[in-house]
Design a protein around this nucleic acid. Structure first.
Lengths: 215, 215
DNA sequence: CTTCTTGCAAATCATTTGCAGGCTT
DNA sequence: AAGCCTGCAAATGATTTGCAAGAAG
């Protein structure tokens, strides 16, 4: 039933190269390294062996952000930090903190077998690059996510703040530089954020949160 | 500079269908739902709009386990639980617990912008299935991962325990039912676990951890 | 001579892109 | 007309698979 694994030369080299990497390489990063020792090896062999070795428990296949899977020689339970710019992955040690656990009543009926924790942000290298390119530009930060406001959203919201009663998108368009059609997308975003309410079909008014967001 | 978004019919339907889902659908799950309302829509349009809407901050693209990306109408910060069997994703509320933070000195030079927490395990549906298929079978549990021992590993380790001095894989093979080549793979696994040491090339001996693991 | 592996090529899966035509200002 | 959007088909990137041949027991 259980399949007999052979420690072939290819397998040994893949394993030892992975052991030397502290970078959680993707399959083809590892392939490039292994190819230097075994020029005739094929990418498929690398994929196949990474799969087999991780199933045998000799290495670990990581579920991390990004499109490619990554592999880790270190079997111990540990966490990662991911660079959203260059996709590099480093280890993170949460020494002091105790790991989260999930009591059964909060687990939605799941049988929980573990927890992945992944921080993300910009790695040291990418921070430097960003600092250069941002020089002189306005500070980034997402204008549409979370509680922030884009310029157009702010314009719409300000127009609404001036209305006594709920008004339609045409009224808003008239009070701003925007077309009615263009307004509707902004309204949708503002409604999601809770800054705008719709007391009646096609009628909109600013909420108290909306007023707070303007100031 | 900033592109003008229009709230087209397709876009509205995609958004509203996503709002009705509490299942964090993949692009093509959503495509299947949307197609019922707009039979002529194409998968590319769904992908394009999910990308655009998430960039505009109206929805959220999730980085979760599994090969396909998933999308979430709920913009609030929250965590997920992932079924390793059917790939379903549910929300998890970590109410009591305060979220982890990462002090700069532990962040490996990264500029940290956030943290993803993902529990994983078996969802209620898959638990039932597993219980059925496991009935009568031996308890699962990974034999090669972590600190556990497979039958072959145990056999090798027991053979080593009986040796006074370090011995080669041929000696081990002779003392067990295994061939020398087959032994080498088990040795590699045992070395990784710290149960076996190699005081000289091709010579192996059991460690104190190895002895502990046998009992 | 059976079992496990390999390299190569072709297939697959999720996602993205080019393009010609469409709809709205 | 200008700008954004669509459907379709073809391209892409990551990974997997079929297969004939090779190596090992």
């Amino acid at each position: 039933m259980e399949k007999q694994l052979r420690m072939t030369h290819q397998r040994e080299v893949i394993l030892s190269e992975l052991g030397k990497c502290h970078t959680h390489p993707t399959a083809d990063e590892l392939y490039e390294r292994v190819k230097k020792k075994l020029p005739r090896i094929s990418l498929a062999t690398v994929y196949r062996n990474l799969e087999i070795l991780s199933e045998a428990g000799l290495i670990r296949k990581l579920e991390v952000s990004g499109r490619q899977k990554r592999f880790d020689w270190d079997l111990r339970q540990h966490d990662h930090i991911y660079c959203v710019h260059c996709h590099r992955v480093d280890n993170i040690d949460l020494k002091g903190k105790k790991r989260l656990s999930l009591p059964a009543r909060e687990s939605k009926g799941y049988e929980v077998s573990g927890c992945r924790i992944e921080f993300f942000g910009l790695c040291p290298g990418c921070r430097k690059i960003q600092q250069k390119t941002r020089k002189g530009e306005e500070k980034m930060g997402c204008k549409t996510c979370g509680t922030g406001l884009s310029d157009k959203q702010r314009e719409v919201l300000e127009a609404l703040a001036k209305c006594k009663d709920a008004c339609g998108s045409k009224d808003i368009a008239a009070a701003t530089s925007l077309e009615p059609k263009q307004v509707s997308c902004q309204i949708t975003a503002l409604k999601k954020k809770g800054y705008v309410a719709s007391p009646a079909r096609c009628k909109y008014e600013i909420t108290s949160e909306g007023k707070a967001a303007l100031s």
